[in-house]
Design a protein around this nucleic acid. Structure first.
Lengths: 177, 177
DNA sequence: TTGACAACACCGTCCAGCCGGTACAGTAAA
DNA sequence: TTTACTGTACCGGCTGGACGGTGTTGTCAA
């Protein structure tokens, strides 16, 4: 696609994430997003003809940014494994207490199928990591633990202290080898 | 609290879970739940005066059942640790492909605070497990990995094959010691 | 008689999507 | 250089429908 589009799209996407995070996933209405983005409702509908398209945009944006961040991590620390890079990226993402992806709940409520691209992405990532190790058991443990960490962050659970968070990460990195 | 009450409550709770699973969390309306439960809307509102009360009932029911199942597991295999029991209970819960808790998304959309009891329960469980081990690192890894497993089940992700699922569980049990 | 509903009409609110404008940038002929 | 036309980007009011919740009346078993 062309990226040189108006920056309203990005503003709207960011506004949607903000609204979901601050007012709750159930309050993500087109009016709320439009006013938050400093755009009229008509303007919003111009960029995203339907609410479903907005959700789709949110998902795609999320996936793109995550993929970019992961590739950057892997590239800048080429001496360590992709799994280690994934662990550390996730650790950083989840350390700051921002349930930044509450919009995901809105998307699921709209239609559970919006998760399909995310599931596909995860399958692909897992497959890739499998290709880089011969210790499947350790990979499974690390991959699932990171999944758990992300889940807790998404649900805004503050079960782990910072100290425990760091201990977890170091334990995972040790298991990952 | 009085469990000797009518069985309509249970029927309604089950119906709500069914509707959320089959029609999506966004379609969990009072009308849908009532008709699914074979109850009139008035009857539903007699048992749950408001939608929020219904959600609360869903959460409490879930927590009660989980706690009962966990205590039963721990009691019937008193030679192994509580952590091991928790791992195996979760493994069983997640093995059968039932995204049985989609209602949780509806509850979050309604009001994220509905998660508070669940978060409290998890904190309590984690604290209890901490009291039974001196290897915090291993506990963290196991606890988070189970969290990840439950998350994937909730999101209906089929990333892991059955073989991988079993390997994960055996790896976790080994780590748990 | 009372508790546990059924049946049903009805209200207020919220919200997605539609539609008729508007401002403006390019562009192309005259 | 002016005029006329075209497409883009956006505005904001409106509506039709869904949904949560209320109120009333009726039923039937314990």
């Amino acid at each position: 696609m062309r990226a040189r589009r108006s920056n309203s799209r990005e503003k709207i996407l960011a506004a949607a994430a903000d609204v979901a995070r601050e007012s709750g996933p159930g309050s993500l209405s087109l009016d709320a997003v439009a006013s938050r983005a400093g755009v009229s409702k008509g303007g919003l509908l111009y960029n995203f003809p339907t609410k479903a398209k907005l959700m789709q945009g949110l998902v795609e944006n999320f996936l793109n940014e995550f993929e970019l961040a992961l590739e950057a991590r892997i590239a800048e620390a080429s001496h360590e494994s992709s799994l280690a890079a994934y662990i550390q990226l996730s650790a950083d993402d989840c350390e700051k207490p921002k349930p930044s992806a509450s919009w995901m709940f809105s998307a699921i409520a709209e239609d559970p199928d919006f998760l399909t691209p995310i599931k596909a992405f995860k399958r692909q990532l897992f497959k890739r990591l499998k290709g880089e190790t011969d210790d499947l058991g350790s990979l499974l443990v690390c991959f699932l633990a990171i999944e758990g960490l992300r889940s807790m962050n998404l649900f805004d659970s503050d079960v782990l202290s910072q100290k425990e968070h760091r201990l977890l990460i170091s334990s995972l990195l040790e298991i990952a080898g």
